[in-house]
Design a binder for these strands. Structure first.
Lengths: 203, 203
DNA sequence: AATACATTTGACCGTTTGGTTAAACCTTAT
DNA sequence: ATAAGGTTTAACCAAACGGTCAAATGTATT
């Protein structure tokens, strides 16, 4: 019963993750999710009252899954360069396993920015910056890292890893034309992106 | 009459551009487009038979508008460094005027990759590479530019300019927390991105 | 075995959606 | 003036959609 319940709710949730990720909130159909979970459509509403409830649950979990991959880097005891290399390796590997996640999250946030607000509103970015200051005080000059350059540098790092997946649909077509394999390109990117960024920010 | 026809069709098309760009194919409603164009819904189907027809027309125009901004750089008579600076200035300025375009196009292509195929299938990327070889033969070594690094470098350039707009919804919330203004960040990015890339690829 | 309660289903409901139709309207050519 | 043909509209349609309901089924408690 409680065993079975977990199973059913889990099956629904997993089906919803796949369908929402593929079709988006507007494109997803409750019937499709029910079919994929192998259950009646009414049972969907028994566990998650409305489509919005179900989507909210799925989105929150997936968004956290995504952003959680960003923060732990700040806490590691590594040099800045090692942190950058570590980030690209870990983050790109994670996206290899969830290639549709970046596009899904970016799109849904653009369609409804309030959704992300409550997820990251309680993160204190100023504190994060102070942590960097503290841990890497002697490296700041070497990398020309100031409070002013920080937004540019951080978004550059994020873009280098996220963009290839957010633009996967285009890149695969372009690469085919060039005889380049997308998966190999991604594998190479783990190191290329790290080299690229470190070279760019080192004085 | 023919004057009026142009006007009506144009009004519909412009309304459709806005609605599709904001809501996406799945989220857009024909009624919303009709309202925005100030006409009857039936008139929509008189000019563009189906929703898919209308979307196809809008998407093709917008996608071309976007990709057209990429190609002319190859033909300019500038040094590689000047080309990179020129690209970021022009491309980011274009996106400032169409901030929702990148997210829209990326998302729709991910949801239906065939759509982009016929748009860029006839572009010969190998030829583009040969053009670069020819125009910048003596600069290739300086920038460590080879047929193998080209995909990594080109996607890095694209990501540096496109990502901030594709992730606008997230960045605006994060920046608010940091006391950073998105528009000022974008203005600064035109030069930062160029410096960043040139520094990264110069030996 | 009987009660109570949670789970699952098929049938159903009201609304929204993309799309159609027949008639009204407008413009132009004769 | 009127016939002809393109343009615009209100009313309508069938299908798809999110959501509900009462009944059926399963499960644990006494």
């Amino acid at each position: 019963m409680s065993e079975n319940e977990k199973l059913t709710e889990e099956r629904i949730f997993e089906a919803a993750e796949i369908v929402f990720e593929e079709e988006g909130l507007a494109g997803a159909r409750m019937q499709t999710i029910a079919d994929r979970a192998g259950i009646n459509k009414a049972l969907l509403h028994y566990y998650f009252r409305t489509k919005d409830h179900l989507f909210e649950a799925v989105f929150t979990k997936l968004a956290k899954k995504m952003f959680m991959k960003f923060t732990p880097i700040f806490e590691k005891d590594l040099s800045l360069e090692e942190k950058i290399r570590f980030f690209f390796r870990e983050h790109i590997t994670f996206m290899q396993q969830n290639p549709k996640l970046p596009g899904f999250i970016l799109n849904e946030i653009n369609h409804n920015p309030q959704r992300i607000q409550k997820l990251i509103k309680n993160i204190d970015f100023k504190y994060l910056w102070l942590t960097i200051l503290e841990h890497h005080e002697n490296e700041l000059y070497k990398y020309n890292l100031t409070e002013e350059t920080l937004p540019q540098i951080l978004t550059s790092i994020a873009s280098m890893s996220v963009f290839p997946f957010a633009a996967k649909g285009i890149l695969e077509v372009v690469f085919e034309n060039l005889g380049v394999d997308f998966d190999k390109y991604i594998e190479l990117r783990k190191e290329f992106a790290a080299d690229f960024v470190i070279k760019a920010i080192t004085r």
